[in-house]
C-alpha cells in the first residue's frame, strides 16, 4: 500500500489561514490600543446589525469581529479538508485530523471569549484569556502549516544526534513554555490584571532561554541549514521584541497625558503584541523542527541512522 503524497493545497490553505490569523491578531491589538473594546455594546451583532456605522472605535471593534468571522470560516474549511485528506493516510498520521478539529474548537472558544469580553465589560481575566487563546490558536494553525508542508514529509530519512545535556528537546520545550508564560504575563499587564514587574522578569528569563537555545542550535548542528536559520530567526525576533517592548512602555507613558490614544503609542504597542505572537510561533516551530530532525542521545547507536518509518 502506498502512502498518498501530501496535499500541497491543504498546506497552502493552512499558510493562508495562518497569515489571516496574524492579521486578526493585529486587528485585535488595535482594538485594545485604541481603547475601542466596548465601542460596540452588543454581541454577537454590532448595534443590532452586521453593518454598523464604521466610525471611531466601531471601525476597530467591528473590523476585528469581521476578520475573526472570516478566520472562523477558514478554520472550518481547514478542519474539514484536513479530516478528508488525512483520513486517507496511514492510521499513524491521522492525528493531524484532530489538530484541525482542535484549531476549530479554539477559534470557536475564542469567539465566545470575545463575546464575553463585551458582556463582562472587559473584565481583566476574560480579556487576558481572550488574548492568550489568540496566541495558542495562531501557534496551532502555524503548526498545521508545518505538518502539511513538503519539507515535513521529506525529512523522514535521517536522524541528527544530540549527545549534549540538557538535550535540545528539553531546551526548546522549556523555551516554548517560558515564552507562553511570558505572553500570559504580557496579556495580564495589558488588560490590567498584573503590573509590569512579572512581565519584565519574564522578559529576562525568555531572553536568556532563547539565547541558550539559539547558541545550542548553532554549536551542536552547525551544518544543518534549517537549524542555523532557526537560531538566527530566534535571535532577531527576541532582539526586536525587547526594543519594541521598551519603546511601547515609553510610548504609553508619553501618551498618558493625551486625551486620546495617539498613533505612536498605538503602533508601538500593537507591534510589541504581534511580535510576541511571532516569538511564540517561532519557538513552537523551532521545537517541532528539532523534534523532526534530532533524536535524543539515548535512542541513538551512531551519528545517523535511518528513521524507523515515515509515519511516526
Amino acid at each position: 500500500m502506498t502512502t498518498p503524497r501530501p496535499n500541497r493545497n491543504v498546506h497552502r490553505f493552512a499558510v493562508f489561514t495562518a497569515a489571516c490569523t496574524f492579521l486578526l491578531l493585529v486587528a485585535g491589538a488595535l482594538v485594545t490600543s485604541n481603547d475601542a473594546g466596548l465601542s460596540v455594546p452588543d454581541w454577537p451583532l454590532s448595534y443590532g446589525s452586521l453593518t454598523p456605522p464604521m466610525v471611531g472605535g466601531i471601525f476597530y471593534e467591528h473590523g476585528h469581529r469581521m476578520i475573526a468571522s472570516f478566520v472562523g470560516l477558514l478554520s472550518i474549511v481547514l478542519a474539514v479538508w484536513l479530516w478528508r485528506v488525512e483520513s486517507r493516510r496511514p492510521p499513524t498520521k491521522r492525528w493531524l485530523r484532530w489538530l484541525g478539529v482542535a484549531a476549530l474548537g479554539a477559534i470557536i472558544a475564542q469567539g465566545l471569549l470575545g463575546g464575553l469580553t463585551v458582556l463582562f465589560f472587559l473584565r481583566p481575566s476574560v480579556s487576558s484569556a481572550h488574548a492568550i487563546l489568540a496566541q495558542l490558536f495562531f501557534a496551532t494553525v502555524a503548526s498545521i502549516a508545518l505538518f502539511t508542508s513538503a519539507w515535513w514529509e521529506q525529512k523522514t530519512g535521517l536522524w541528527l544526534r544530540d549527545f549534549r545535556s540538557p538535550s535540545i528537546h528539553t531546551l526548546v520545550l522549556i523555551t516554548v513554555a517560558a515564552v507562553f508564560v511570558q505572553l500570559i504575563l504580557g496579556a495580564a499587564l495589558r488588560h490590567k490584571a498584573f503590573g509590569i514587574i512579572p512581565h519584565l522578569a519574564g522578559a529576562v528569563v525568555v531572553t536568556g532561554l532563547i539565547f541558550l537555545v539559539a547558541g545550542a542550535l548553532r554549536r551542536r548542528f552547525p551544518g544543518v541549514p534549517e537549524l542555523r536559520l532557526a537560531a538566527r530567526g530566534l535571535h532577531s525576533l527576541i532582539g526586536l521584541q525587547l526594543l519594541l517592548g521598551a519603546a511601547a512602555w515609553w510610548s504609553r507613558s508619553y501618551a498618558s497625558s493625551f486625551p486620546q490614544p495617539i498613533a505612536v503609542m498605538v503602533a508601538l504597542t500593537v507591534a510589541h503584541v504581534v511580535m510576541g505572537a511571532l516569538v511564540l510561533v517561532s519557538s513552537v516551530l523551532v521545537a517541532l523542527v528539532c523534534y523532526r530532525l534530532v533524536r535524543p542521545a539515548g535512542a541513538l547507536l551512531g551519528s545517523v541512522e535511518p528513521r524507523p518509518s515515515a509515519a511516526d
Binding site: P41, D42, W43, P44, V80, L104, G105, L112, G115, V118
Partner: peptide, 21 residues
C-alpha cells in the same frame, strides 16, 4: 465525521446565542 459535524453545529449554535451589552 458525523461526530465532528455535530460538534461544529453545536458550537455554531452556541456562538449565535448572544446577550445584550
Amino acid at each position: 465525521l458525523w461526530y465532528f459535524a455535530a460538534a461544529v453545529t453545536l458550537a455554531a449554535a452556541m456562538m449565535s446565542c448572544g446577550g445584550k451589552g
